[in-house]
C-alpha cells in the first residue's frame, strides 16, 4: 500500500473509530446505569449541540496554548495511529523507531493535558493539570518497561517487526503481564475512569471545566481519537495487529482494536478512582515492580 491509500485508510479508521467509541461509551454507561438504548446518531447530535453554543473564554487566558492543547492532543492520537501497520510493511509512518515515536507521543500527552488545564487561568482546571502530571510520570515509566519487553522478541523498535514477530505466538500469551499493565496506561492517556485525574467529577470537569462550544467538542473528540490510537497500538503490540486467517489484515486490526476499546471503556465505567496519593503509592510500590518483572522475564526469555 502506497502512502496516499494508507493515509486515506488511517483517516477512515480514525473517523469510524471515534464514532464507534462514542457509541460504545454511551452503551456501557446506559447499560450499567439501567437506562435504555442508544441511537447510533447520538454522537453527531451531541457534536452539533456543542457546536451550536458559543465558545466562551475566561479572564486573561493563555489562548494560544488552549487551542494548541486541543489540536495537539488530536494530532498526537493521529500520530499514534499512523505508526500502526495496516498490513505487512504498511504504515503511514513506517520508521525503524516507531515504538520510540509512540513513547514520545505518550509523554507529550502529559504536556498537552497540563497545557489544557493551565491555559484557562482557572483554579479547578489547574489542579487537574498538576494532578495529571503527578500520575503521568510513573505511568509513562510503566509503559516504557512494558513496550521494551514487547520489543525484545522482535529484536526491533519497529512496530511492523513487533507485529511480524507474533506470527507464531501473540505477545499476550508470551508476556501475560504486558497487556493488563498497558491497558492502565490507556485509561490514563484517554483520561478515563480510575486514571482520570485531569477531568474528574471532584473538580467539576477539571481541565475541561472552562471549555464550551467548539472547544468542548474538540477536546471530547481528541479524547476519543486517543482511545482509537491507543487501542490500535495495543492490538498491534499484544494481539498480533493485522495477523489473522481468511479476512484481510485491516479487518483483523479493526476487530482487535474494537475489542480493546470496549475493554478500556468497560473498565472506565466499572473501576473506582482512588485519591491521588493512594494511586501514586499503588503505581510506585506495586505496578512498577510488576512491570519490571515483565521486562525481566522477557529479557531472560530473549537470552535463553
Amino acid at each position: 500500500m502506497t502512502f496516499a491509500p494508507a493515509l486515506t485508510t488511517l483517516i477512515l479508521f480514525l473517523a469510524i473509530g471515534i464514532w464507534i467509541a462514542a457509541i460504545l461509551d454511551a452503551v456501557f454507561y446506559r447499560r450499567i446505569s439501567g437506562q435504555g438504548g442508544v441511537s447510533v446518531l447520538s454522537p453527531f447530535y451531541a457534536a452539533a449541540a456543542h457546536l451550536s453554543r458559543q465558545r466562551l473564554t475566561t479572564e486573561a487566558p493563555d489562548r494560544l496554548n488552549w487551542y494548541l492543547a486541543i489540536a495537539g492532543y488530536l494530532a498526537i492520537a493521529t500520530i499514534g495511529l499512523a505508526v500502526v501497520p495496516f498490513g505487512p510493511e504498511t504504515a503511514v509512518i513506517g520508521i525503524k523507531t516507531s515504538v520510540v515515536l509512540w513513547g514520545a507521543c505518550e509523554s507529550l500527552v502529559v504536556v498537552l493535558v497540563f497545557l489544557h488545564g493551565w491555559s484557562p487561568n482557572s483554579p479547578l482546571a489547574l489542579i487537574g493539570a498538576y494532578r495529571y502530571v503527578a500520575i503521568g510520570l510513573p505511568i509513562m515509566l510503566l509503559s516504557m518497561f512494558v513496550l521494551i519487553a514487547a520489543a525484545l522478541p522482535a529484536r526491533s523498535l519497529d512496530l511492523r517487526d513487533i507485529v511480524a514477530s507474533q506470527e507464531g505466538l501473540w505477545n499476550i500469551i508470551r508476556q501475560p503481564l504486558g497487556l493488563p499493565l498497558f491497558l492502565l496506561l490507556g485509561l490514563s492517556l484517554t483520561l478515563r475512569g480510575p486514571f482520570d485525574y485531569a477531568d474528574s467529577a471532584d473538580l467539576a470537569g477539571g481541565t475541561s471545566v472552562e471549555d464550551s462550544g467548539a472547544n468542548r467538542a474538540g477536546w471530547q473528540v481528541a479524547r476519543l481519537a486517543m482511545l482509537v490510537g491507543f487501542s490500535a497500538i495495543a492490538a498491534s503490540t499484544f494481539l498480533g495487529g493485522y495477523l489473522g486467517p481468511i479476512l484481510p489484515g485491516i479487518v483483523w486490526l479493526a476487530i482487535k482494536t474494537l475489542i480493546l476499546m470496549a475493554v478500556v471503556i468497560g473498565l472506565s465505567h466499572l473501576l473506582a478512582r482512588m485519591p491521588v496519593a493512594r494511586m501514586l503509592g499503588l503505581i510506585w510500590k506495586f505496578l512498577l515492580p510488576i512491570a519490571f518483572v515483565d521486562l525481566l522475564l522477557a529479557g531472560l526469555v530473549a537470552l535463553a
Partner: peptide, 12 residues
C-alpha cells in the same frame, strides 16, 4: 459514587 468515578452506578 460520582466522586469515585462511577457515575453510571450513581444513577443506578
Amino acid at each position: 459514587l460520582r466522586l469515585l468515578g462511577l457515575p453510571a452506578l450513581a444513577k443506578r
